[in-house]
Design a protein around this nucleic acid. Structure first.
Length: 585
DNA sequence: GCCGTTTTCGGCCCGACTGTTTTCAGTCG
């Protein structure tokens, strides 16, 4: 069993224990162990074989033993026994909004309801409304929850909700009673997938703002409408929450609702150790604790961090991946910013499957203020994408050279997005690749190889000296296609050894390589290139999504090669071929 | 079940809203 599957088992154990009414802290221990697994930087097999599982934060003796058993045997007697106590599909009920362990337990005990279909029937025939603690409205809400679950998985790609989110926050800012308005939550942390949108406003008239929000034309239905908090579902299916606070409370609310939950827990315990209680409104004297220092003044969000002897932590880093410790040591990185980007390399034109001509793409890149643009149309094996053969590629190269001759201060680089064939060889021979400024090598076929085969395939491609960068490393399509099986640490090792640059594909459907891997890549000395994989002129703007993910991956402008000015980028592209030129800054 | 500059036992973040109650439990974030 791999670590993600094991994490799922631990999550399920937590839910089953909750159903049994176990100690909530025990339940949380399993949830936290699952999370610790998900963010593991080392291969799980290593930790298991070297018996170091308990050295991981959140994994102790009991959870460590269970993880080891699952990892080596693929099953766990404790889990099997636990599952025996409930019908197998009861866990699916947890996906319904408004249903938690207590209610699911009652539904099972009293009505033997254990599946979504049975629950739906029980809501409709009136039996749910008769249960203790339930009523007509509860039954109606459960039906709504079921409908919502079925129509949307409840997850949205960041890029698909970005415009709506920005539009809504601007509408809030335009309201006469709103002083400050901000998007918080996972959206502010630039998570690749968001489940909801959180808005915070400061106002002296919360009721008026709540009424404005719940009546917004984008709202499909209202889940809750209170004096300071409202929840709605928008027409596109995403849930939005709005909190109204005073100006003085705003920094605290913004911080609290930006999260992550785990980051907040750390902040609060840190406050407690100073004798302060931190909530979404203020610092206050913690009950029953000695107030060692006077309560700090807070005008803006960063003051909260300063009060806790921390450097302010950028929202993207607030994932409880060590940022608090590093902030305490005043060693947080200066994260890359959009304005640092000077060019980009993985872009398509009408020559393959792009929708804009070469000239239009160049004009759009200039419009964005870039100094160079690399053209990497598909190679011939990607026939579904109208991939170029060597003749068409040569013609494109000649056209680009003509365009460059008439240019000053802007450079078009010739490239290809060359298919990595099933055996790890490339779709063009080296003689052709040598005629180009650079090569992006990507997998577009045979996704179902074993992990060992796929890893070997990528590594042999990177061993080719003409392969400048590796495109969308895992091939995932967010919310639609799983990444293919590949040993990412091994690929990163090979990238470091061969001097191959790893792409951070900025297309909001990909965002590949995932942000969770970039700290490890950086540690190994691997360089990043942020590429939009643009298939149109507007696709170039996806670069901003890539920058968000790079920031989540703790990357600075020094880690990303396309922050280099035109005068210095060429040497980086040639470095691997020549062997002698040093890569990077 | 996990954890430790309040340390090996006794804590573990905390508040809003809803719907059911008649003072609060459940859920969510």
């Amino acid at each position: 069993m791999n670590k993600d599957e094991i994490a799922d088992v631990l999550e399920n154990i937590a839910r089953l224990l909750e159903l049994k009414g176990e100690n909530p802290f025990k339940v949380r221990a399993y949830t936290q162990a699952a999370r610790a697994l998900e963010i593991l930087a080392e291969p799980l097999e290593t930790l298991v074989s070297e018996d170091r599982l308990t050295s991981v934060d959140g994994i102790g003796k009991a959870t460590g033993e269970k993880i080891a058993e699952l990892s080596s045997h693929g099953r766990l007697a404790y889990y099997d026994d636990l599952r025996e106590e409930f019908p197998p599909d009861i866990l699916t009920l947890f996906a319904i909004q408004g249903l938690g362990a207590k209610k699911i337990k009652i539904l099972w005990d009293a009505l033997k309801v254990h599946s979504v279909t049975k629950l739906e029937r029980a809501c409709k025939d009136g039996s749910v409304a008769t249960l203790p603690g339930f009523g007509e409205k509860t039954a109606a809400n459960i039906l709504k929850g079921i409908e919502h679950m079925r129509s949307h998985a409840g997850e949205f790609r960041f890029g698909d909700v970005a415009q709506i989110a920005e539009g809504l926050v601007n509408d809030l800012r335009g309201h006469p009673d709103v002083n400050l308005a901000q998007i918080a939550g996972s959206f502010r942390r630039k998570k690749e997938i968001v489940r909801d949108l959180d808005f915070i406003v400061s106002t002296k008239q919360p009721e008026a703002v709540m009424a404005f929000f719940t009546a917004h034309p984008l709202v499909e239905n209202v889940l809750a409408h209170g004096a300071t908090k409202s929840s709605v579902i928008l027409k596109n299916g995403i849930q939005c929450d709005l909190r109204a606070v005073t100006g003085a409370e705003f920094p605290f609310a913004l911080n609290y609702f930006t999260g992550s939950k785990e980051h907040n827990v750390r902040m609060r315990s840190r406050a407690l150790s100073r004798g302060w209680s931190l909530n979404e409104y203020r610092f206050s004297a913690a009950e029953g604790r000695e107030l060692r220092e006077p309560l700090p003044d807070v005008c803006e969000e960063a003051d909260i961090y300063r009060a806790l002897d921390l450097d302010p932590v950028e929202p993207e880093l607030r994932e409880d991946r060590g940022e608090i410790d590093v902030a305490e040591r005043h060693a947080l990185p200066h994260l890359i910013e959009c304005t640092n980007l000077r060019g980009t390399f993985h872009n398509h034109t009408t020559a393959s499957d792009g929708r804009a001509s070469l000239e239009d793409m160049v004009a759009a890149a200039k419009e964005l203020g870039l100094e160079y643009l690399g053209i990497a149309d598909h190679s011939r094996a990607s026939f579904q994408a109208n991939g170029l053969d060597d003749k068409r590629l040569a013609a494109q190269v000649a056209r680009i050279q003509d365009l460059n001759d008439g240019e000053a201060g802007f450079r078009i680089f010739t490239g290809t997005e060359c298919d990595i064939l099933k055996d790890g060889s490339l779709d063009f021979p080296d003689e052709i690749l040598a005629t180009l400024d650079y090569v992006v090598a990507s997998v577009h076929s045979s996704f179902t190889l074993t992990e060992a085969e796929m890893t070997k395939r990528l590594i042999s491609a990177m061993e080719n000296p003409y392969v400048t960068m590796l495109g969308h490393l895992t091939g995932r399509l967010l919310l639609s296609r799983e990444p293919y099986q590949v040993n990412i640490p091994a690929v990163l090792d090979a990238a470091a050894a061969t001097g191959t640059i790893i792409e951070l594909n900025a297309n909001p459907r990909r965002l590949d390589l995932d942000w969770r891997w970039w700290p490890l890549a950086k540690e190994k000395g691997v360089k990043c290139v942020i590429n939009p994989d643009a298939h149109s002129t507007s696709g170039l703007q996806d670069l901003i999504f890539g920058v968000g993910i790079a920031r989540k991956g703790w990357l600075t402008k020094e880690d990303v090669i396309n922050t280099l000015p035109l005068a210095r980028i060429e040497a980086v592209l040639k470095a691997k071929r020549g062997g002698s030129v040093r890569q990077g800054h």
